[in-house]
Design a protein around this nucleic acid. Structure first.
Lengths: 193, 193
DNA sequence: GAACCCGGAGAACGCACGTTCTCCGGCGAT
DNA sequence: ATCGCCGGAGAACGTGCGTTCTCCGGGTTC
């Protein structure tokens, strides 16, 4: 019986998620290359062998972390946008989401930009995931712009504001960038009608 | 005689500059941690011992590379801005400089953002240099905005556009971001008067 | 001409990484 | 009760890093 599966303990998917979340905390806070497998082992409470049965290599963990981050980002943005009223307010909700994010003590910039700068030239898979993440966001903004009845060229402009706010907030270390970007977006939206 | 200095060969400052430029090429193209001292030795044609008499550690080379990059950036931007006519055109010249830069095959994003993402959490000196670089740019934009007689809150908005254009161009891999940012800047400037 | 010494080259060192291997304890089946 | 086996733990391995050391050739000095 039991089909050869382990007797007790959390389901495999839960363990994988636990590893991904632990790895994300470490990688995001300190950089991917700065965190070794041994530290991930210690922080996750799993043995090295278990880690390597769950993931074939560190790079696969990194990719899983980025995919997880993409889902969290998408869920967060759409939630904030969904709570907004008018189409214009829905566009501006993006910057409110950024403001919330920047206020977090652990904020250290966009994980995809960081990963791209660190590994993009060395790992095509990481570069592709970053590209897809950004392209997905651009597409999402374009949908919101269209729903607001604004001209299509507004979308890349608003997306650029969001990107710029993230790096500015990360490096300057203050969250004002979200408010500045929001005001700029308001002006651009108003001027486009 | 000779004061104990080497007899011939290029001056010390020239050798240092050669090292910094070689290191910059490698670090920017592939990431800092991906390039070892041995590769820098080979690419620069110097011995390891010579490298370590010129610089006390790899981190100091990284810092020198970033300082050099800051000077190149400042010189490039001010040259482009200086060639522009009206105060408004001078503001927009920033995005023309970005467009030129993005068109370069070797463009791989802002070196400071990349270095910050890779080492910012682990090397305070790198983080500080990135902060200073960005703060310097913000100050410069603020001066241009003031010279154009535009309201001060325009400056951070234009700076955010420039930052966003850089990361968007780097990750998306196309240079359109400069043109989008420029058009957004035109709208913001027009709306501010 | 001989002693000295400075600087160049790259082999060597210690360390930390990603990955693999070996050992061991405990459960299930007979 | 005994055997077999699966999976956990972390020691061990090879590699590549940043840095240091040793050796050696040639130029300067008495």
């Amino acid at each position: 019986m039991n089909d050869g599966r382990p007797v007790a303990g959390p389901a495999l998917e839960d363990v994988r998620r636990h590893v991904v979340e632990t790895a994300d905390d470490l990688y995001y806070a300190r950089g991917i290359q700065a965190v070794g497998m041994d530290e991930l082992r210690r922080a996750s409470g799993l043995s090295l062998k278990r880690l390597y049965t769950l993931f074939p290599s560190k790079e696969q963990i990194v990719l899983a972390v980025l995919e997880n981050r993409h889902e969290l980002w998408t869920a967060g943005v759409t939630a904030k946008v969904g709570a907004a009223g008018s189409p214009t307010e829905r566009l501006l909700a993006i910057y409110d989401y950024l403001a919330d994010w920047f206020a977090d003590d652990s904020f250290r910039g966009c994980g995809f930009i960081n990963a791209f700068g660190e590994l993009g030239a060395v790992s095509p898979a990481v570069a592709d995931l970053a590209r897809e993440h950004k392209a997905d966001f651009q597409r999402y903004v374009a949908e919101l712009v269209q729903a607001a009845g604004a001209p299509a060229e507004l979308a890349p402009q608003l997306a650029i504001l969001a990107e710029g706010a993230q790096t500015t907030a990360a490096i300057a270390g203050n969250a004002d960038a979200a408010a500045h970007a929001r005001r700029a977006a308001e002006t651009l939206i108003r001027a486009s009608s």
